[in-house]
């Protein structure tokens, strides 16, 4: 474990020094995410000009949801996104060999090697928006709920990573440009709105087989609705089950992998 932490510290150092080499891109990235935050907040503000609640949530609750969405996005952009974009290229070109011969888990190496320093600043910005949303909430949320939310939100970001990986792992067999990532990107839009707006079969789907509700909406709901033991168990089952499935498919993928030297 210590070895992995030390290795991650090296990844961080390299990533920051590389990010500072491309300063204009550094600021463009920050601007891009700031734009995304503004557009999302504006979207909800405009909607709430016409309604008092959406999915049973008020505008203040929607601000908390939006802040949770920004936190999740910034977290996954900072830790995982750059690595996952490159993964299909490594698999298709046979560049995976380099990672397979290292004395560390290839899954760990490939998933977190590149830390997006520019997105890290967006994570700070997202934290700022979250603090603002909590501060303007009409009732005190309580320390324990905030801590529980942060844990569930970290789990949500990890779940997003798992779902991304599940959409990329088919590249081992398909040799396509990006597996079924287009489908993933389309489906992940369901996580951009509170799960309470969905009804019937789709809501059940988002809580089980395609668990996008647990990426942002369920963690956010814990802030103002609290969490039942069933909900916590459900979250653990979804994240744990998803992780086990991902590792199993990853191993199967590695067995199917072939390159010029393997």
């Amino acid at each position: 474990m210590t070895r992995y932490l030390r290795l991650y510290a090296y990844f961080l150092r390299f990533s920051f020094s590389r990010a500072m080499e491309f300063r204009l891109d550094f600021f463009f990235r920050i601007g891009m995410d700031a734009c995304w935050y503004a557009v999302h907040l504006a979207f909800f503000v405009v909607l709430f000009n016409h309604t008092g609640t959406l999915g049973g949530w008020t505008l203040d609750q929607m601000y908390l949801f939006a802040a949770a969405l920004f936190l999740m996005d910034a977290l996954q952009m900072t830790v995982f996104a750059n690595n996952l974009w490159a993964l299909p290229i490594y698999i298709n070109r046979g560049d995976l060999d380099y990672y397979l011969v290292r004395p560390v888990s290839p899954l760990f190496f490939l998933s977190v090697r590149e830390f997006a320093a520019n997105s890290f600043l967006n994570l700070l910005l997202a934290c700022g928006i979250f603090v603002w949303a909590v501060a303007r909430y009409p009732e005190p949320l309580g320390f324990s709920r905030i801590v529980l939310f942060l844990i569930l939100q970290a789990a949500g970001a990890f779940l997003f990573y798992i779902l991304s990986m599940l959409s990329l792992i088919p590249v081992f067999w398909m040799q396509s440009r990006q597996g079924i990532r287009d489908i993933f990107w389309s489906l992940h839009r369901f996580s951009h709105r509170p799960h309470r707006v969905y009804t019937g079969f789709i809501r059940r789907l988002l809580m089980t087989v395609l668990p996008f509700a647990f990426v942002v909406s369920v963690p956010a709901s814990v802030l103002f609705e609290g969490a039942s033991p069933t909900l916590l168990l459900h979250t653990t089952a979804v994240v744990g089950g998803g992780f086990a499935l991902m590792v199993m498919l990853w191993r199967m993928g590695l067995r199917a992998y072939s390159s010029a030297s393997s």
């Binding site: 909607l47 309604t51 008092g52 959406l54 049973g56 839009r189 369901f190 951009h192 309470r196």
Partner: peptide, 16 residues
């Protein structure tokens, strides 16, 4: 996905 998400959002908007 594009259409599905907005469909649910606007159904909720009109309902609520």
């Amino acid at each position: 996905a594009d259409f599905g998400v907005v469909w649910f959002v606007w159904m909720a908007m009109f309902r609520e």
